[in-house]
Amino acid sequence: MPGHEQKTDYLRVYFAGPRRKLERDPAHPPRHLLTEPGMSYRYEL
């Protein structure tokens, strides 16, 4: 949405759910659903 480019906190909340399901140990840094700073997220096998 225009005007919401700087509001990225909702992405962190949204990706927390899939990250909990995909990662073996969600308490450690992710191995599969990776954050790409300034871009988005990337899924890596």
Results as ranks from 00 to 15, higher is better:
residue 17 G to E: 10
residue 5 E to F: 06
residue 21 K to M: 10
residue 16 A to Q: 03
residue 6 Q to W: 13
residue 12 R to K: 15
residue 10 Y to M: 12
residue 25 D to G: 08
residue 41 Y to M: 11
residue 12 R to H: 13
residue 35 T to L: 15
residue 5 E to A: 14
residue 4 H to K: 08
residue 4 H to Q: 08
residue 13 V to R: 03
residue 25 D to S: 13
residue 9 D to K: 03
residue 40 S to G: 15
residue 25 D to W: 12
residue 32 H to Y: 11
residue 36 E to H: 10
residue 11 L to C: 11
residue 37 P to S: 05
residue 32 H to R: 14
residue 6 Q to N: 13
residue 6 Q to K: 14
residue 30 P to F: 04
residue 28 H to S: 12
residue 37 P to L: 12
residue 3 G to L: 07
residue 32 H to P: 00
residue 29 P to Q: 03
residue 8 T to G: 09
residue 26 P to Q: 06
residue 23 E to W: 02
residue 25 D to A: 15
residue 9 D to H: 02
residue 17 G to K: 04
residue 10 Y to L: 15
residue 37 P to F: 08
residue 18 P to E: 02
residue 32 H to A: 07
residue 22 L to H: 02
residue 20 R to S: 10
residue 12 R to I: 09
residue 15 F to Y: 09
residue 39 M to P: 01
residue 18 P to M: 03
residue 30 P to H: 06
residue 41 Y to W: 13
residue 41 Y to R: 07
residue 12 R to D: 15
residue 39 M to V: 14
residue 42 R to E: 02
residue 24 R to Q: 11
residue 8 T to Q: 14
residue 42 R to D: 00
residue 35 T to G: 10
residue 23 E to Y: 04
residue 7 K to A: 10
residue 45 L to N: 07
residue 28 H to D: 12
residue 40 S to H: 06
residue 11 L to P: 00
residue 12 R to W: 12
residue 3 G to R: 05
residue 31 R to Q: 11
residue 6 Q to T: 09
residue 13 V to D: 01
residue 26 P to H: 08
residue 37 P to A: 13
residue 19 R to L: 14
residue 22 L to S: 08
residue 39 M to H: 12
residue 8 T to R: 12
residue 2 P to G: 12
residue 20 R to W: 10
residue 23 E to C: 07
residue 21 K to Q: 13
residue 38 G to S: 03
residue 34 L to N: 03
residue 41 Y to G: 01
